[in-house]
Design a binder for these strands. Sequence first.
DNA 1: GTAGCTGCAAACTCTTTGCAACTCT
DNA 2: AGAGTTGCAAAGAGTTTGCAGCTAC
Lengths: 136, 136
Amino acid sequence: MTTNIEEKCAEAGLKMTGQRRVILKVLDEASDHPSVEDVYERAKKLDDSVSIATVYRTLSLLDELDLVIRHEFQEGYSRYEVNWDHHHHLIDLETGEVVEFQNAELERLKVKIAHELGYDLVDHRLELYGKKIKKK
Amino acid sequence: MTTNIEEKCAEAGLKMTGQRRVILKVLDEASDHPSVEDVYERAKKLDDSVSIATVYRTLSLLDELDLVIRHEFQEGYSRYEVNWDHHHHLIDLETGEVVEFQNAELERLKVKIAHELGYDLVDHRLELYGKKIKKK
DNA sequence: GTAGCTGCAAACTCTTTGCAACTCT
DNA sequence: AGAGTTGCAAAGAGTTTGCAGCTAC
């Protein structure tokens, strides 16, 4: 069984090596937002010939192809996720947990703001940083 | 003449050394979003005894005190600006130029989104990435 | 066959830190 | 006087890269 992302790599003309297949599988199955180190650790469990240099190179490639999104949540390193659907993130300042959300009003607003400034919107990021409301 | 930011440093109990005064002056006069290296270069012109280690240490301190905002515009390094007023950024993908903007509707929306997810909003960032609309 | 991919290790960039000397308050 | 601050250089973290060998197509 090939993953959707694997098909897109083939379309882009990438050779499907064993290491890439493993890295794509890890990304495909990740429900979180793994760091390069995370991807490397998970990939090694499936195939310990994978090196961290290949993980870096593969993630850079996937980022260029827009198959993956690179995040910098002010942590000093990058985290990645498969570019399935468009959404944003709320980072829990107490636990580091990342909550995903979408909001139609926001999508409309951001295009409007960019146009008012004289720009065509190409990309954007919204990150909310918050603390869980305590139940009384 | 003391800058506003210098007064706030005094309130926070920081010693006002010559190096700090120069770094604060550089930040106070910056109308852009300088990197650490930028701040260092500008400070050195005013007082070449300033070291880059002090620039790093000072900017970290100012960030903790919320007198300054640290940005990571997906460039692999940090950029800073004085925390005068709350606003967001549109980054021109062709020139790297950074345009600042504010939007009341957005402010309302972000609080609403956080609450719907069960969070109190502490901080947030919105970055738009776009290309200038060409005049015909 | 060959262009592209890999692991390894070295190199690179950005940032932090230990230390002895110095300086605001 | 003394705690805080500094420059320097070394170390640390994350990431990139040159190279020789390997592999998908």
